[in-house]
Design a protein around this nucleic acid. Sequence first.
DNA 1: ACCTGAACACCGTTCAAGT
DNA 2: ACCTGAACACCGTTCAAGT
Lengths: 303, 303
Amino acid sequence: MTEQPPYLAIADGIRRRIASGELAPGDRVPSTRAIVRESGVAMATASKALAALAREGLVRGVPGVGTVVAEVAPVRAAHDGSVPLSREALVAAAVRIADAEGLAGVSMRRIASDLGASTMALYRHVSSKGELVRLMTDVGFGEVALGRPSGDWRAQLTHAALQLWEVYRRHAWMARAMASFIRPDPMPQAMKYTEWMLRALRDTGLSVHEMMHVHLTIIAFVQGLGVAMELESNALQDTGVSSEQWMDRNGGRFAAIVSGGGYPVLATVFEHEPFGLDLDSLFGFGLARLLDGVDAHIRETSA
Amino acid sequence: MTEQPPYLAIADGIRRRIASGELAPGDRVPSTRAIVRESGVAMATASKALAALAREGLVRGVPGVGTVVAEVAPVRAAHDGSVPLSREALVAAAVRIADAEGLAGVSMRRIASDLGASTMALYRHVSSKGELVRLMTDVGFGEVALGRPSGDWRAQLTHAALQLWEVYRRHAWMARAMASFIRPDPMPQAMKYTEWMLRALRDTGLSVHEMMHVHLTIIAFVQGLGVAMELESNALQDTGVSSEQWMDRNGGRFAAIVSGGGYPVLATVFEHEPFGLDLDSLFGFGLARLLDGVDAHIRETSA
DNA sequence: ACCTGAACACCGTTCAAGT
DNA sequence: ACCTGAACACCGTTCAAGT
């Protein structure tokens, strides 16, 4: 019996509990924090153990819940070996991995193994990992259901922004994978989105320059919230602790620091409410203010 | 004479040209794209060659210019071996590296080598690289000069947002390093910033909940633009091609795709102007719209 | 011509072995 | 008690050697 690294021993333990039926599909496996507490190992070791199980498809991170036992056995890829490699298959596999394990889980070796191909074979379809990641964001834009123009610019912009936000929610990696909107690659789906936004603004009297500024301001806002959401989503997968749970547990400590002095106004935030901040309401609030401002600008311009 | 990897051969070539004086301090060294063209190597090899030289302190990336020969010989750290390791020294070294080479250049081994310490010695001051990166963002918030309250909420919010944007400009890594503003670590400087923002809004009649939403909406907007700026800054360092130069060269190709059909409104963007979009004007436009919207909301609330 | 295994130069972090 | 070298399990990408 050979010695094995601690993370493998921990993974084995959980694997056995799954195999024995003690942990059924849908059940939460111990969070990294729980593993740290119970096994006395470091966070990194615990993370590695769960990552190893996720890699096998035995467990997966569920936003809002934690890491749970996967429904079926190894998910692996839909690929059956007969489907030839293609740019699309490759990007789809990368998206699948990023959805389940975060962008950090997307490695060229991992994609290749999921598709039953050699690592280097991927490079016949993309020039680099950077290109692959850019292609992933265009898949995201392609999932926006733009619908047909209605003649009401504000309703249309709200719809498109909300749709994009939904995409970011589904694909927490979007914000970080986002290709530059300043030095854009010709990304067909993102361009379609831009076109739709500009079309909605066509009859407002704004210049194309201003229309573009409105569009990019909204994109920047969604992007910024998206970064926060990804951090949130990763933290949830790593520790199984949601933002609300975290605030319940750490709110007191936080409030103590704040009320320690020097933060009189901030202190009232913790006095008045449990500070249940959620990203959806923040998105709604910010978008409404932004569009109110755009509305005022349009009125001024056309006046 | 042993064989050496191609990237080292390329680095040697540039090093010799610097040593001989052919390339003087301040001169641009060949961009990665130029190296690809001239040496027939892949982008990654060219990047590696420049990264190796940057690591030695011989060259550095200058935003808006490209990679240039460093003014003095190896910059290294200010550390002289006698200064004891500390959390602050460690974070400062990481910031220095990230400013010069991007967040990707910040590795535990690199920081240790800059400080003349062993890699593992760093772990006596931070628990993980993640914690180190979070500490870096607080340094950024600490660089905001908040000034004294003026009684004019809009002027104050504009000032603070602009100051934060300046920090993001100086430290392009800020957006990506940003610790979660949903599950905040108690970061003293970031908390000071938040306190200042809330204080500015205190007499507007908004609830603390709404004040917090206004603050976080602005942060999200700055964050989103920050992500774009970092992509821009990294692209500039890697290729030496600025956004304007890129658009000059690729604008035609882009316009051709757009005018190929399917993008009638987008096409007019390329007809009317060289599409010189810069992030500063976008920041100014978006912030003004956002604050117009907040203004309208405050009027409604107090009416 | 097409494909890929081995290798290179990295990572963050663990852990046992030093002082 | 404090510190650190070696090792582990990874990366993306190059390149020579296969078919």
